[in-house]
């Protein structure tokens, strides 16, 4: 009990960082995911390579690339920025696949009807395809959000203070890694259960 009283406040504070880093990552992923999904559908090489790279390379290595290789190229970004951006770029590759799956569910007839009514391709994308696809994608997007919250723990490796990093710090300062990591896991679990409830709570 003493341990929880001592460790919980700093961990919850750090969990706040996890939440906003994940939120930015997911938002970035959703926004970037749309053009990438469109690019993939058109079989554009850049889009296919993007998805293949960010899905094929472990996120840990991607983070290390942003942390080590960018400065090497003369691009010096704050660590938290590089890490959050990497999370978002990686998320975008997965979101693109989800959006593509959502697009596939939109029936061709509806699009042809829109075209015959004179909607421009842009209007068709924004007013017909995306809304229908988003509706169908919601469970997959929530699922991806949960994966991103979990994946954000890897950001601890490049020294950013989020939930996992705070658990590490507490584990080494108190010499009680077992309760520290158990508590840390419980907080992640609670966050993800909340996300899942959000997925189920609202009717589609």
């Amino acid at each position: 009990m003493d341990f929880i009283a001592e460790a919980l406040p700093p961990m919850l504070w750090a969990a706040g960082n996890t939440v906003w880093i994940s939120a930015v990552g997911i938002a970035l992923g959703l926004v970037l995911g749309v053009p990438i999904a469109v690019g993939c559908e058109a079989r554009r090489a850049w889009a296919l390579t993007y998805v293949s790279f960010f899905r094929g390379v472990p996120l840990l290595i991607q983070l290390m690339l942003a942390y080590y290789a960018l400065p090497f190229l003369g691009i010096d970004l704050p660590a938290w920025f590089a890490a959050t951006a990497t999370l978002g770029l990686c998320c975008a590759a997965y979101m693109a696949e989800i959006i593509r799956g959502g697009f596939a569910l939109v029936q061709k007839g509806g699009l042809e009807a829109a075209r015959l009514l004179g909607l421009t391709p842009r209007q068709i994308l924004l007013r017909i395809r995306l809304p229908i696809a988003l509706q169908a994608m919601r469970p997959a997007v929530i699922n991806e959000a949960i994966l991103i919250v979990k994946a954000s723990s890897l950001i601890s490796v490049v020294g950013i203070l989020e939930l996992t990093r705070s658990a590490q710090a507490i584990a080494s300062s108190t010499f009680e890694p077992l309760p520290a990591y158990a508590l840390c896991g419980a907080i992640y679990l609670a966050m993800n259960l909340l996300l899942m409830m959000f997925a189920r709570g609202r009717p589609a």
Binding site: K150, T164, P177, G185, N192
Partner: peptide
Amino acid sequence: RGTPFLVQCFL
């Protein structure tokens, strides 16, 4: 499924 693999490894 609800916790990061890294945290499981640490635990």
